[in-house]
Write a protein that binds this DNA or RNA. Structure first.
Lengths: 110, 110
DNA sequence: ACATTATATCGTAATATTGCAATATAGTAT
DNA sequence: ATACTATATTGCAATATTACGATATAATGT
């Protein structure tokens, strides 16, 4: 026990959960926000921006990348990380659809 | 170590991360989807719907409630859980805004 | 009062995450 | 070749999460 029973859920549910989980940490929210706010996406300054040590930032970046939320390219000496628009769009669509479904609901007891 | 450094991030970043984290598990995605799809929100059937034992489901519900994503009312013998529309709307707005920001971005190297 | 039903809590084992120091890797510059 | 800079990986300690059996709680029905 302790391991998530991913095989019991749909592929879509697992994929969504993976993306949500990746965003489920304030440092990773901050990373995403910084990647978006900076117009370019050369991101060597992330370590200076965040209150975390370099290996920790690197690890968070890896997790965001594994979840498909960011992409990384080698760009000469530095590495270029940037947000994967499609992944964010997918999350956004899901939540927009959820919101719609909720608006159409009548009976609500809480 | 091991504990998230919440005090180093903004309140909004922490709040978002808490909600995202709550959705970062396929069982909790499934719970939300079920709560939304069922027109009423008396939810004694959740245990039958999910491939998890009753205490586990109860624990997931508690986490969703702690994150502010669902509300629970005692409804006679059963307990009525339902989605907190405002919380979902908040998440949705955040992602919609993020998507907008991404659309306006020109330079993208990945 | 007693059984039944529905949900919550406790305790605990297995596993995962978080954070960082130390070290490795890879590219650039001298 | 050597030093420098930027990022990744390793190893490890502290903490958190996941899952569930056992048990508790609380309301209903008989």
């Amino acid at each position: 026990m302790g391991a998530t029973k991913t095989d019991h859920f749909s592929e879509e549910q697992n994929k969504l959960a993976i993306m949500m989980k990746a965003l489920g940490h304030p440092a990773r929210i901050a990373i995403m926000e910084h990647l978006i706010s900076v117009d370019s996406c050369i991101c060597g300054d992330l370590v200076n921006v965040l209150p975390l040590a370099q290996p920790t930032v690197s690890q968070h970046l890896k997790e965001l990348k594994n979840a498909g939320l960011i992409k990384g390219n080698i760009e000469g000496t530095a590495i270029c990380y940037c947000v994967d628009k499609d992944a964010i769009a997918e999350l956004q669509r899901y939540l927009a659809n959820t919101t719609l479904q909720l608006e159409h609901k009548e009976k609500s007891c809480c």
